[in-house]
Simulated scan of single mutants.
Amino acid sequence: MTETTVAGSTESITADDTTLRVLSTSDLAGIDITLTDVVTTVEGAYRTLAAGQSDNPRKLTVKPGDGHSVSYAMLGRDGSRNVVAIKTSYKHGLDKARDEQHYYTALTLYDDVTGLPVAMMDCGRIGSLRTPAVSALLARECARPGARSALVIGTGTQGRLALPFLLTTLPDLDRLMVFGTHSDGIAAVREQVRAHFPDRDVEIVTDLRAAAAESDVLVATAGGHTPAAVEADWLRPGALSILVGHGLAPSTLHRADRVVATSAAQMKVTGTDMADGDGNFPAVDTEFPPVLAGTAPGRRSARERVFAYNSGLVVTDIALGHRFAQLALDQGLGVRVPLWQ
């Protein structure tokens, strides 16, 4: 049996090759972490990847012919933390309403120095924080200078924290708008903004075309059943459109002046609904890691309409999952499971 520690943790883990620490949904739900901490952690993962120190292969996808479910598997290595991880994701009921769907995602971390497991955890909260943090970084790097207005389309898991994260990286935003079709989701968006920025409020919009025309930054996070579909000719000069889920029409990609993707390969795997009639995508001008590293521009002029595709990279899950593992171990959370006995 070996003593190993998670970097930054005050508690050592008694680990061997038969024991795995499992962190449940409730374990992670009670951990406090600031938006700034999340953004810094995610940004660090991108910078390490841009420096060639991490590995992030394209995700594997399995989807039945009728499209009722989708499964992903992602393997990666974080070179700054010396951590290897595997993430799995499975969603069932894509043909049903959101409250009838089933979704499971898990992340397993291994210490690549000792060769021992660190933890296995539910990845739901990690994804709900990582994705809007990436959108906020995209906005910081790719929005036009002096951007003041932001529109979020969708009020599900990804939409609810989109505005607080945008305010974290673009504090000068003074008009915050949301378009949604679920009253409880709209209320949750307002609640999250007030929780993190008590002096700010959200404008609820019903005329999507008019709101899009007045937005410097648009973040589309809606589910597949959304009626929202912002067209390219609705956008003002200099607008940045960030696609996370749904809510943007393919024209916003195909008629963009500049296309940025977290991963060009993954855009072609997960963004098939944005392809043209022949199944083709326009060329990606740059991936996002070089933009953060300062070796490629996020935009070239204030009037460019920029389209950014936010597809999650497993290295960001690894970094944020490892950060949560640190915080969980400090609090003595989790259960050791003799998995391999």
Rank of each mutant, 00 (worst) to 15 (best):
D184N: 13
D122P: 04
V134R: 04
L339A: 12
T262H: 00
G271F: 01
C142K: 10
V38G: 03
T226K: 08
L20E: 01
E191K: 05
F197H: 15
G271K: 01
R190N: 06
G115F: 07
P297S: 06
V189N: 01
A213D: 14
T41Q: 08
T14R: 06
R125E: 07
F281V: 10
L161F: 08
T316A: 12
V260A: 10
I186V: 13
T88V: 13
E203Q: 14
V70Y: 02
T10N: 08
R209H: 09
G93K: 07
S215Q: 00
D216G: 07
A308I: 08
A133D: 07
R130T: 13
F281G: 03
G8M: 14
R77T: 15
Y46G: 03
V6M: 09
P237E: 13
D32E: 14
A283R: 08
A210H: 13
R305P: 01
K63Y: 00
A106N: 02
E203P: 03
G93T: 00
P145E: 15
G159S: 14
T252C: 15
T206A: 14
D174T: 15
F281P: 00
A249W: 00
I86A: 12
C123F: 02
A133N: 04
L75N: 08
V193T: 02
T61E: 12
D257M: 11
T108L: 09
L116M: 15
A119K: 01
A296E: 07
V217F: 00
T105P: 00
A264V: 08
Y72G: 02
K96T: 07
T40W: 10
V42R: 03
